[in-house]
Simulated assay, not measured.
Amino acid sequence: MTRPEPVYPAERHALYDAHGYAAAIRSGDLLFVSGQVGSRADGSPEPDYKDQVRQAFANLRATLQAGGCTLEDIVDVTTFHTDPERQFEAFMAVKTEVFPRPPYPNWTAVGVTWLAGFDFEIKVIARIPDAA
């Protein structure tokens, strides 16, 4: 049985220690990435929504890289939005920058009422290309 292994990006932000969780868990050939928010290094949120989404994707990229993956290795995405109706247009603009063409990963978007001071969160599952 594969033993789960925690993964952290090189520039680990304060939220991991403050809240006691791993950025990702590597298990076999899969990388389960915890929800990534648009936090600065000190754990505070980017104030502008679009910048917060961009920072969340930057934090996601760093975590994927630490686990031996890229955006192209993502197979499952879940995003959380505090005000989806108002945020959708700005979110889609950033999403299109990050995933400009097919094949796209599958995606589930969820409206929520609270994200600990953030307005956006993304969690993914990726297949690690060289894990086999």
Rank of each mutant, 00 (worst) to 15 (best):
residue 36 Q to M: 07
residue 36 Q to E: 11
residue 36 Q to R: 03
residue 39 S to I: 07
residue 41 A to W: 12
residue 42 D to Y: 04
residue 43 G to S: 04
residue 44 S to T: 15
residue 44 S to G: 12
residue 45 P to A: 02
residue 47 P to W: 03
residue 47 P to H: 05
residue 49 Y to M: 09
residue 49 Y to V: 08
residue 49 Y to R: 10
residue 50 K to G: 13
residue 51 D to A: 15
residue 52 Q to T: 09
residue 53 V to F: 02
residue 54 R to N: 07
residue 54 R to M: 05
residue 55 Q to W: 01
residue 58 A to Y: 03
residue 58 A to M: 05
residue 58 A to T: 13
residue 59 N to S: 07
residue 59 N to H: 02
residue 60 L to T: 10
residue 61 R to Q: 11
residue 62 A to V: 08
residue 63 T to E: 04
residue 63 T to A: 04
residue 64 L to S: 02
residue 66 A to H: 03
residue 67 G to F: 00
residue 67 G to I: 00
residue 68 G to F: 01
residue 70 T to Y: 01
residue 70 T to S: 15
residue 73 D to P: 08
residue 74 I to M: 08
residue 74 I to L: 04
residue 75 V to G: 15
residue 76 D to V: 09
residue 78 T to W: 06
residue 78 T to C: 10
residue 79 T to E: 13
residue 79 T to L: 08
residue 80 F to M: 09
residue 81 H to S: 03
residue 82 T to W: 05
residue 82 T to L: 11
residue 83 D to V: 04
residue 83 D to W: 06
residue 84 P to G: 12
residue 84 P to C: 09
residue 86 R to K: 13
residue 86 R to H: 13
residue 88 F to G: 14
residue 89 E to I: 11
residue 89 E to S: 14
residue 90 A to Q: 12
residue 92 M to R: 14
residue 92 M to H: 13
residue 93 A to M: 11
residue 96 T to N: 15
residue 98 V to H: 05
residue 98 V to E: 06
residue 99 F to K: 08
residue 100 P to Q: 07
residue 101 R to W: 13
residue 101 R to H: 14
residue 102 P to Y: 05
residue 107 W to M: 11
residue 109 A to L: 06
residue 109 A to Q: 02
residue 110 V to E: 04
residue 112 V to G: 03
residue 115 L to F: 04
residue 115 L to K: 03
residue 120 F to Y: 15
residue 120 F to E: 07
residue 122 I to S: 04
residue 123 K to D: 14
residue 123 K to H: 11
residue 124 V to H: 09
residue 125 I to G: 13
residue 125 I to E: 12
residue 125 I to R: 15
residue 126 A to I: 01
residue 127 R to L: 10
residue 128 I to A: 01
residue 128 I to M: 02
residue 128 I to W: 01
residue 130 D to W: 02
residue 130 D to C: 03
residue 130 D to P: 02
residue 130 D to V: 05
residue 130 D to E: 14
residue 131 A to Q: 00
